[in-house]
Amino acid sequence: MDRKAIGDKIQVILVKVLKHDRFEMHDELTATMVEGWDSLTHMAIIAEIEKEFSVQFKLKELNKLRNMGTLLDLVQSKLN
């Protein structure tokens, strides 16, 4: 799956969990820039991504995430 397609699916998940679409998808996007994406919703988003792509993350991998770009890379590496 290419990055664009992964990004689109993650966008749908974000809208579903956060119940709004007031953000633009790009590689430099961070959680603090998205309203409602905080420590209380973060793991729900992660769980949804795991379900959508049928992958399993490790906590160590999540701790290394810095922005949307690194998240896309991580998902992509899991899929290949």
Binding site: S39, L40, H42, M43, A44, I46, L59
Partner: peptide, 25 residues
């Protein structure tokens, strides 16, 4: 506490949705 308790705990409980978050917090 956030780094060393809440994050690992809510990661483990992530499939329990909101209940998991509440238990962690």
């Amino acid at each position: 506490i956030m780094l060393y308790v809440f994050t690992p705990l809510s990661f483990i409980l992530r499939r329990h949705n909101k209940v998991g978050v509440i238990v962690s917090i």
